[in-house]
Design a binder for these strands. Structure first.
Length: 512
DNA sequence: AAAAAAT
């Protein structure tokens, strides 16, 4: 066993060397084995647990295969070699994507949507409704994996705003049978807003297909399950708590025909306490009735700890990863704003940032607590500034209204907790303000993933963007230093008492 | 601390 592991490790080294993978992947490897055992799934009842145990039993073999033994793994060194040519053809940023295949199945990246054997109505939706011409880089790589046999599981990571949603939405639409009135695809999202957003994209793309969708956050989300009746829509999208209840207690969501399960913001869904149990339960309930279903995990971020956990929760998955160094979004200019005090921070927001933001496209101000969101909102409004705020304590109707106004452009500045940190896609967002630096719970460690997600709300699909990070004490200062180190990017400072500094800097970022 | 959603 030890020998096997060692030779597998050696092999992995070779493969990585040939792929010019960054050296820090090594330390990741260590962290992986150390960390993942600490994440627990309540073992007694779930089939997922059973499935997992089986995976572990097959562990000797599996590790070997997954980690680079010739048997199953086809690392694609030719990807690296051909990348310049590919880039020309697929018109993508020069990102070096790392693919690890779990089976012998060869995949050719899709140069056009025609390569994917999609139905005519679906293609029509892509071209006329979505106005897509050809697959983006991440779409070109993942869609063949999703849509062709053996319909392998997939763990995929790609930039914010690079078209991940299309990958899994098209994946679901491509796999379901429009003529069968039973749920066949399920998409789990961390927030109500994201579920709605994904549903909207799906319905738009599905316009000519006859495929319908049920969403836990629909207008009728107060309707009791018994009144609603069995779900016959081909696709179901929602938040984990309600989805779980629909499948178990309410019994209106039948998993017998389920072909594909998607986790959007998958690192969050699998690793965050509160989400994890529900996610595992959903997986096990589907596995019981449709053992051969396909699982897709999508996120812009997978910390090494979570990546290891994901690999164990979703066995034999193909992997498509973007190296960490390429993820820090060079298109988004990031700045440090040192504020004299906590009160001074509000002044900086009010006097320096708001007047500019009102002239810009749209902005999101992120804060750490619900209270802070409401407080900032009222206090800025009292000063005559137009803005809205959103946080999980508000009613569904209120949240929907705020989002609707923001989407329509009626409001330009939105103050938000981390409800909107992930996935929220609004092309006009050019400026993100971190009023608080995101922190990992119970520590004074910055939450790097969350930071990346937050600033990724701007600069959607290659557009320009800027982020102001407000710090007003040593803790904030230290955390921002750590963020700089982690992404290996220095941030310029914007002096709060320099009248024109903010405007100058936004010009520099290509915004003003 | 916040997130979903239930109690």
């Amino acid at each position: 066993m030890a020998a096997t592991e060692e030779s597998a490790a050696a092999l992995l080294q070779d493969v990585m060397a040939s792929m010019k993978v960054r050296p820090d992947d090594d330390e990741d490897e260590e962290e992986v084995t150390k960390e993942w055992g600490s994440v627990e799934v309540d073992a007694e009842e779930t089939d997922a647990a059973v499935k997992k145990v089986q995976e572990k039993e097959a562990g000797g073999v599996k590790e070997e295969v997954d980690d680079g033994d010739g048997g199953g793994t086809v690392d694609l060194p030719e990807m690296a070699l051909k990348s310049e040519k590919l880039n020309e053809e697929v018109e993508s940023p020069d990102t070096e994507i790392k693919k690890v295949l779990a089976t012998d199945t060869p995949y050719t990246s899709a140069k056009s949507f025609e390569d994917l054997n999609l139905t005519e109505p679906l293609l029509k939706g892509l071209y006329t409704e979505m106005k897509f011409e050809r697959p983006s880089r991440i779409q070109a790589e993942t869609l063949p994996m999703i849509l062709s046999p053996p319909y392998a599981n997939l763990i995929a990571q790609a930039h914010n705003g690079s078209g991940k949603t299309t990958c899994f939405v098209l994946g679901m639409l491509g796999r379901v049978d429009a003529n069968l009135n039973a749920p066949q695809a399920l998409c789990v999202c961390p927030t109500r807003e994201l579920a709605i957003q994904n549903e909207e994209v799906l319905l738009k793309m599905a316009k000519y297909t006859g495929i319908t969708c049920a969403c836990t956050a629909g207008a009728d989300d107060r309707v009791s399950a018994s009144r609603r009746g069995k779900i016959t829509d081909q696709v179901v999208i929602g938040t984990p708590g309600t989805l779980k209840r629909w499948m178990s207690k309410d019994r209106i969501l039948d998993a017998r025909r389920m072909k594909i399960l998607v986790f959007d913001e998958a690192d969050h869904m699998l690793a965050t306490e509160g989400f994890q149990d529900d996610s595992m339960r959903i997986m096990s309930m589907i596995a019981r009735q449709s053992p051969n279903y396909q699982i897709l995990l999508f996120s812009a971020t997978f910390s090494e700890r979570v990546k290891a956990f994901a690999r164990n929760s979703v066995p034999r998955a193909n992997e498509v990863f973007v190296p960490k160094e390429d993820l820090s979004l060079d298109v988004i200019k990031q700045y440090r704003v040192r504020c004299p005090s906590s009160q001074g921070r509000l002044d900086v927001l009010r006097n320096n940032i708001f007047p500019l933001a009102e002239k810009l496209g749209q902005s999101i101000i992120f804060v750490r607590t619900r209270e802070n969101a409401s407080f900032l909102h009222t206090s800025l409004q009292q000063d005559g500034h137009r803005c809205t705020s959103i946080q999980g304590g508000m009613s569904h109707e209120e949240r929907d209204r705020v989002i609707r106004e923001y989407r329509s452009g009626e409001t330009k500045i939105l103050i938000s907790t981390d409800v909107l940190a992930r996935g929220f896609d609004q092309a006009q967002v050019t400026l993100v303000v971190n009023y608080d630096i995101p922190v990992k719970m119970g520590t004074w460690e910055p939450d790097y993933e969350l930071y990346l997600h937050r600033i990724g709300r701007s600069g959607r699909f290659g557009r320009k963007g800027a982020a102001f990070n407000l710090v007003c004490d040593r803790k904030g200062e230290e955390m921002l230093n750590k963020i700089e180190d982690h992404f290996d990017r220095r941030m310029d400072e914007v002096k709060y008492d320099d009248e024109d500094a903010f405007e100058r800097v936004l010009k520099e970022a290509g915004l003003a």
